[in-house]
Nucleic acid binder design. Structure first.
Lengths: 344, 344
DNA sequence: TTCTCTACTGTGAACGCTCACAGAGCATGA
DNA sequence: TCATGCTCTGTGAGCGTTCACAGTAGAGAA
């Protein structure tokens, strides 16, 4: 009766029927045990669980899905260009976090990379056909046609970071960008800096805008006029960090600190500063944002604003499951935290 | 009859029955059209395709899987510690490549991260229960208990890189490590270096061993005795590259080149050399391995050995699908290529 | 006692598809 | 003429679940 290995081929797995026979009960009872165990006598439940263990039974999700109409799986949709995915370890952190959070609910994750236009169409079709119950959406520029379509089709959707152009009926989980930026700039002031530059994130995204707003607010509150020559745009990529740093050095050689809107850009900034012979933090302090793995991979290690990735992942999953369960969309804003390391 | 959007809720999708009615044929005929179109008259096929388009029909994979016993999906199994996944962009390249290759066959990918022991058990169960048709296995230290179990359960399996301890009955796709190493060391000789050190990969993996072997072979062929003080072990991680470089500099200050068994380690090496005031490539040439995104993210950009990631992905998928289709396991070795950049 | 309510159990039907089979129509060859 | 083979089509069964429903048993109330 054991389902042991050794055999080369794959044998036919036991069904709910086998379990029922083995436990001396009916299919219905087994099914009830499988689905929460309500209205089942303790004796029956035990017999069933025993039988499940003995037979090595695992539910056939296809059969279940066929009748329930749910797939009990969700999609992880990444609408970023490949290069960004290859470069930025934040995606891995998020992907890993969400996968684990879902695993604890026994829900498999389908990975969907929306690159080409064809891909997008294929993926949209796949999702709207009901092959997943919901979607975790990750993209920095999230004014996304795919997202738009999914929302219209009524597919449960949770974005990472506040999406734009999707109205208010879409869930999202985000860190408190403005507050994080404020903390960082305040910290730079605290360590005695006064000529504080900023390399922003993409300003067509709420995150980018908020981080910039926090920067300006704190400076203004401190009685320091915002010097537009000290603010240069970036797009979170390492290359844009390098470009930004070069521009900053040219426009404001007397810079004594930079707040960089992502750790990845900060990595680029550090490289440029080193080439330019500016010591960090002695000559110029550098503050990042994200606390991505990149922050500690670099010397000096980055002082940065921690986005609580683990909580972001688990919240995304929680909100998505709630929404699949019929609840209304929700927005979750999580607090950030200043992590002081060697670059300030 | 259109399936158009606008409605907030999800309506019930059309079934094969609806398509059949719409096309004036039977379910069987529609099914035949869906599955390759053999034994279908051109007229019927056209009518069916028209009806599919009109109704917006998408096959219900659960129903199909229930009867075929296939899931028409595969798992991408990563048995690496999280930190490695976060640090090494090679995983992203591979993940992305495989996902796309599978997408072109209309096969979804389930992401499986085997972290904790519990996770491993859960995943093994999931897979052996037949919820995926096959598994793409990625791990550097692949003497893996999960892999072992899957192989014994007869699950189609393709590893990236030659796995150890799994006998010969498991498929794998790998780059020609030895040959790549030979090319690099020959190149270092060609540019006039004679004191060539090496930081190896993990020596409990075939890849690590082969790259070391290639290094030794070429030196010997060139009449240069292998100096064991010039060879230090690494594990592909950036940190181990830094440690290795420091050890090398201490043991052999007269070093004029290093062959580093991964780009990620090389990144660490470059940092150490820079701190030590050694100019690259003037004082010391650095050769990497992988041609990962890390290679060009660094200054000077790395001369490295390109692993053909795109071909590796597509071959892994091809071999897996073949094996799912009943063919025997196969080993594929792909050629590498020297990519000369600024570090040599 | 009898009736009601609750806790529990078993039984068909159905989910949407594929597969095996039977059979129709037509051409070919004996 | 009939048999044989081919292409094409429709039909019923069944994949492994869940769900609605019917039904049983026992406790408590009337």
């Amino acid at each position: 009766m054991t389902m042991s290995s050794s055999a080369g081929g794959r044998r036919k797995p036991p069904t709910i029927h086998d379990v029922a026979r083995e436990a001396g009960v009916s299919r219905g009872t087994v099914s009830r045990v499988l689905n929460g165990g309500h209205y089942v006598s303790p004796a029956a439940a035990e017999a069933v669980n025993d039988a499940i263990r003995r037979t090595g039974y695992v539910v056939n999700r296809h059969a279940r899905s066929l009748i329930t109409g749910r797939s009990d799986s969700v999609g992880f949709l990444l609408t970023e260009p490949q290069e960004r995915f290859f470069e930025d370890p934040n995606f891995n952190v998020l992907l890993s976090g969400c996968t684990q959070a879902l695993a604890s609910h026994d829900i498999p994750v389908l990975l969907m990379l929306a690159g080409t236009k064809d891909e997008r169409r294929r993926i949209t079709r796949y999702i709207t056909a009901g092959h997943v119950d919901g979607v975790l959406l990750v993209s920095s520029h999230s004014g996304d046609p795919v997202a738009q379509e999914l929302r219209e089709a009524g597919v449960p959707l949770v974005a990472c970071g506040k999406p734009i152009g999707l109205g208010s009926k879409v869930s999202y989980v985000a860190a408190d960008d403005r507050d994080g930026a404020r903390d960082m700039v305040r910290h730079l002031l605290d360590v005695g800096r006064r000529r504080i530059g900023m390399i922003t994130g993409p300003l067509d995204t709420p995150g980018g805008v908020e981080r910039l707003a926090g920067y300006k607010e704190v400076l203004t509150e401190a009685g320091i006029a915002v010097d537009e020559a000290l603010v240069v745009p970036g797009d979170y990529s390492k290359a844009s960090g390098e470009a930004g740093a070069e521009r900053l050095l040219a426009q404001a050689p007397d810079l004594d600190a930079v707040f960089v809107a992502s750790d990845l850009m900060a990595q680029g900034v550090l490289a440029v500063l080193q080439r330019a012979g500016r010591r960090v933090p002695d000559d110029i302090a550098v503050g990042g944002f994200d606390d991505s793995p990149a922050a500690t991979a670099v010397t000096p290690q980055l002082t940065t604003i921690r986005q609580p990735w683990d909580r972001i992942s688990t919240e995304m999953v929680r909100v998505l499951l709630a929404q699949i369960g019929g609840e209304d969309p929700a927005a979750v804003i999580l607090p950030t935290e200043l992590v002081r390391r060697d670059s300030t």
